[in-house]
Each structure stands twice: as structure tokens, then as C-alpha cells.
Design a protein around this nucleic acid. Structure first.
Lengths: 221, 221
DNA sequence: CGTCCGTTTGATACATTTCAATAACGGTGG
DNA sequence: CCACCGTTATTGAAATGTATCAAACGGACG
């Protein structure tokens, strides 16, 4: 549960165009470019949700914490992903940079009210993608074993990072644990177990090679 | 994991107006009224998602299942709730009636494309409510103990059923277990434990009286 | 070269599951 | 109305997976 330093204040709406096009779903965001270093907060729970963000480089975690500090990471956001769309007026999660990260920040209203351009429709798609991922996540947290959780995490990350077999994870073991509802020790043990089984190869703790992606996917049940 | 019988086929778009107004968020749905009996399927995973539903009476569970039959209930829907809004074209969950249930079924397009009436905005609100609940659910599944899960379930249900202290649950212990990521035995044990602690009073397994709602809420952490 | 932070590994504790048996409930038919 | 049956819920004892506590390891960096 790391506490978050200050943000490199994203002043709203200095028109600095930026765009990326990794997927057909890709959304073009017009806004300020923001640079964050490791563990810096993008926004905090309870703050007004007036902006949405797109990851250009690096990665972000969104999470909630219980009163006693237990943390649940809702999702990670990788380059190309848009995050920060909220159900209501206020932030329900805290967002922090996993590593040195570059974002584009756009006014929420800019995106939402622009109905004719089809941006609102894309925003809907993005929000629905969050919902879909959250429901998948609930299935994992509620019904999968530690082995299955770690395996599905690896498979999911591989797909999101561009269907590669060589993962360069932007997050620590603690982040993975807090995403999967496990402890750091269990994550570590499970990874070494997967390595011993020949399914993966660990090369430095941020770098994981998927030897048998097929078998790994089957492990997810 | 009960298998689902046939639906009382909801023929689309026989204009039978129905409405209820439990919350300010309430949405008016124009469509057919559908009657379902216990365990009947409303829709199944993989089917095209061309309708949305509103619960008039009874209750509904939406769930996903792993290949080996493990089931995770994503959410319960109670009178006044709208469900069946999907991220994509197809159903990602299966929906079944918990008890004898009455629904209103409306064409999805009816609701989505009616932009000017503000219905699209309400649909957004509903979808976002699902997202919010799903994220809360993930926090519960990932980071709360069995005690905390059951307590928060009771508190949540009390709030949704109209902030009452006397719950008439429409679901079985198995449903609760599959919602909370526990076994039926653990749910049962936890409830009797809560009863022994004086926090609740069980009166027939569907009926639960909350003796100390405050203490119960604090138990959720 | 030593320190620091994150990770791995080990031994033990514990919460929850699993397996098994009993009890309570709800519906049905006599 | 009561007895019976199948289903659902409760309770118990043992097994197990994951957490907890504790120590050693490793790489990054000054």
C-alpha cells in the first residue's frame, strides 16, 4: 500500500494534440500531455472526475483500499488504454503510475458531449470494456485458484501487450498480488512453480517468457 | 449449478407499456411483460443481446461459469433494477430467475438510439451503476474475509431492498455462495456465527432480521 | 563495496474447503 | 391434516490451499 506523492499538475485543456492507433477501438484524445514518475498519483478517490486519460507510455494502476489498508487493484492500464471514466461525479478509485509514465489528459466534457463525432459512442465502448474486464476479474477473484489466477494474469497481459511471448511487466509482485487477491509470497511461489513446470521462464523479475502459452491458457480453466 | 429450462419466449416489441418509479434513476421501459418461474433462463451466454430487461417482481441472477462448472454470480437484480445491458453484441453472462419473476423486456435499440429523450443518458447511468457494483464486488472477492463478505452482502441487500431490517432473500445459500466466492457451508456457518454473535436473527432460511445493522456495516471493513 | 528494496524461499498457522452425516423445510398425495 | 419425499440447509471432522512470520537472496545504485 504505497502512498502517493504529488502529481505533475495536469492543467486542463491546453490544446496539445496527441494520438495513437493501436486498436480499431482507439480513441483520439485532445488534451495536455502529462509526465509522471513511479508511484505518482494521477487522481485520488473522492476527487471530482473531470478528466479522462490515455496512456502513451508506461502503465497505471487503479485501486481501492479498505479501511485497514488492504488494497484491491481494479485494473492496470497499458499504452493505448483509456482510463478515468467514472460512474458518477467523483473518483471511486485512486490511479497511480506503475513506472515512469506519459499520459494525455482530456476534459471529460470534451469527450462526452461531443455526440455527433462518434466519440461518445467510443466512450461507451471504452466504459463497457471496463465493465467486461471487471466482470472477468470478479470471476477470477471469486472462483479461480492461485495457479489459475496467475496463469490467467499472464495470458491476459500477453494479449494486451500485443500477443507476445516475452512479457516485460511494468508492475511489481505486490501489484500483481493486489490485482489477483493474493499475497506477494503466493504470487512468487506460483511463478516459480510455473517455471519448474516448464510453462514459463523467469528472466529477472520483470521479464517473463511464456514457453507454453497454450498450456498456460488451458490452466486458466 | 442448476441447468435452465425454457423461457416463456419474450416476443419482442408488442407494445405493452409498463413502468415503476422506485428511484430517481428509474428508467421507463416500453416492452413486453414476461413471466418466468424459478430457475428459468432469461438469456444465455453467447446469445445475441438485443433486449434489456427490468425486474417488476421477483429477482434475477446473472452469472458466468468456468469450464469445470464453477459458477460466479456477477450480480442479483431486484424489483426496479434494469439488467441485460452488454458490452458487445453477445451475452457474456447467463441470466436466470431466482424465484417466480415478472420482467419487462424492451428492445435494446429502442433504448439506445433514443438519444434526445434522455434515455440514452439514463442507460449510461445504468451501465455505469453495473460497473460500479462490479468493482465493489471485485474488492469484496479479492480482499474480504468470509465474515466480511457475508456482512457486506446483508448490508447491501438491506439497502437495495429498501433499507429495511427484515430481509426476505429471494436466493438460496448456493446463490449467495456463488455470489460471494465461497462454499454453501461457509455461508451457512458464517450466518449462524453472526446469529450467535447477536448481529442477526435467522427466521427460516430466506428470512433474516438485522439486529445490529450498524455493527454489521462496521464488520465490512 | 555496501546498502536498500524487492523478491524468493522456508516453516508454521489458519481460514476455508471438502467430505460426510444429520436436520429442517416445502411441496405432494393420500 | 398428516405422512412422505426430495431438496436445501446446517453441523461436524478432517484435509488443504493460502496467509503469515521470518530469514536469506539478488540486483540496482550510490
Amino acid at each position: 500500500m504505497q502512498m502517493s506523492p504529488m502529481v505533475t499538475a495536469p492543467r486542463p485543456y491546453v490544446p496539445t494534440a496527441t494520438m495513437r492507433t493501436p486498436a480499431p477501438e482507439a480513441i483520439r484524445l485532445i488534451g495536455v500531455t502529462v509526465h509522471l514518475s513511479r508511484d505518482q498519483e494521477v487522481f485520488g478517490e473522492g476527487e471530482p472526475a473531470d478528466q479522462v486519460f490515455k496512456v502513451v507510455r508506461g502503465a497505471v494502476r487503479c485501486f481501492r483500499v479498505l479501511s485497514d489498508g488492504r488494497r484491491q487493484i481494479c485494473d492496470f492500464y497499458l499504452p493505448g488504454d483509456v482510463f478515468g471514466i467514472e460512474p458518477g461525479q467523483d473518483r471511486r478509485t485512486t490511479a497511480e503510475a506503475l513506472t515512469d509514465t506519459v499520459l494525455v489528459a482530456a476534459r471529460r466534457s470534451t469527450v462526452v458531449e461531443d455526440e455527433d463525432s462518434g466519440t461518445a459512442r467510443r466512450l461507451w465502448a471504452l466504459a463497457m470494456a471496463d465493465l467486461q474486464r471487471s466482470q472477468d476479474h470478479a470471476l477470477t477473484l471469486g472462483r479461480r485458484s492461485a495457479n489459475e489466477r496467475v496463469a490467467s494474469f499472464l495470458v491476459d497481459m500477453a494479449a494486451r501487450l500485443g500477443d507476445v511471448d516475452n512479457l516485460e511487466l511494468p508492475m511489481t509482485r505486490q501489484d500483481i498480488a493486489d490485482y489477483l487477491g493474493l499475497t506477494i509470497e503466493t504470487v512468487s511461489r506460483t511463478l516459480t512453480h510455473l517455471q519448474v513446470s516448464g510453462l514459463i521462464k523467469l528472466a529477472g523479475c520483470r521479464s517473463i517468457h511464456l514457453r507454453k502459452p497454450r498450456a498456460l491458457a488451458e490452466l486458466c480453466a
